[in-house]
Simulated assay, not measured.
Amino acid sequence: MDKTIGLACNISTGKLDANQAVSGGEYPFFTCAEFPDQIDHFAYDDDVVLVAGNNARGNFHVSRYKGKFNAYQRTYILTAKEGFNIDYVYYALKLELKRLREKSQGSQTKFLTMPILTGIHFRDITGDEQTEIANVLSVIDQKIELNNRINAELEAMAKTLYDYWFVQFDFPDDSPQGQGKPYKTSGGKMVYNPTLKREIPEGWSDGIISDVIGKVPQAMKVLAKEFQDNGKVPVIDQSQSYICGFTDDETATIQPESAHVIFGDHTRAVKLVNFDYARGADGTQVLVAKSDKVPSYLLYQIVSDIDLSSYGYARHYKFLKESKCVIPRAEVSQRYQNTVKHWHEKIRDNIFQNYELERLRDWLLPMLMNGQVTVGEAS
């Protein structure tokens, strides 16, 4: 006989409004979005599964977390009762996402009610069997998480180098006088720039983003309703997910010469794309570097560093194009490009490896949970 989530878990909800997120806060703040925000105080410290209680498309995101956190009032917080494995509960809920969407209530925003959540069924197996199944799936998720941490470290390295060279101006000075020492720290000549209202290295200049980007490649835009779970060409749009879907329409393919920068007109999301892709519609802006003084990988870092948050909900691309930026000497820019290119290629490889791992996990998930495949067969 099947068990239910209501029998397996203690369930509560968060207490906060969604607008209480704090940028740069110390703790994750789980709302009904796919990824948590941040907040500066916590209300919970536990080993939990979190389920989004509403979503405009009925995609009730399920998250696994252990530690200190806070939660929105429409987020369900689940802890496992004795005899039930919390990881098994997490995977059981992931398997039910499509069914939850079908059972959701409400005409505009879709709602996941407590009776629907507590009534979800899963196979009645022993605690040891639950642990075995959860362990197989967790190994895959742990590799995905490791790749994500590696990517975050590589992104941080590229940002640190950018700050050191193009904000603090301590790039290696290869002139006979500099002998490879940090430019500004070792006395490199600085000149006051009235537009940027700061000193910049001699020979550098100022500009705006529209000065350093070129013509966007002509290609068909892929609508959200046309996204596929799998396909020949990954689709990049302005959402927080790096790859939002796929298409089999190869006429939509864009082939960057080096890399393109994707900017979200509404979301302000910034992505570097160094592979063939298709462009999502509705606010997905493509930035193509046209100057050897601001090549693609440097352009990505410059755009990522521009703060447009004060404009609130708006079309941000027009403000981005008019944003001021420093224009370095080409040899410094190219040296940065050559250094970080390998890091971003590793990031790309990890992203696609994670996609394959997610496919494997999602293929195994229903068979393990339904008993079609045993743990011995899966491993």
Rank of each mutant, 00 (worst) to 15 (best):
T4I: 07
T4W: 06
G14L: 13
K15M: 11
G24M: 13
E26C: 14
F29C: 00
C32F: 10
A33E: 09
P36E: 00
Q38T: 10
A56W: 02
K66M: 10
G67L: 09
R74W: 08
T75C: 14
T75H: 04
E82D: 15
G83A: 06
D87E: 13
L93C: 11
E96T: 12
K98P: 14
K98G: 13
E102R: 13
G106D: 05
S107I: 14
K110R: 04
L112R: 00
I116R: 00
H121T: 14
G127K: 14
D128W: 08
V139H: 05
K143H: 06
I150T: 07
Y162Q: 05
W165S: 03
D170T: 09
G178A: 07
G187I: 04
K189Y: 12
K189N: 08
Y192G: 03
L196N: 00
E199F: 05
V216W: 05
A219T: 11
K221E: 14
A224L: 08
A224Y: 00
I236N: 03
Y242C: 03
T247K: 04
T251P: 01
T253I: 13
D265G: 04
H266T: 15
G280P: 01
D282C: 09
G283D: 02
S291Q: 03
P295M: 07
Y297M: 14
V303G: 10
S304E: 05
I306S: 09
S309W: 02
K318I: 11
K318D: 13
L320H: 08
K324V: 12
V340S: 02
F352E: 04
L360P: 06
Q372R: 01
T374R: 13
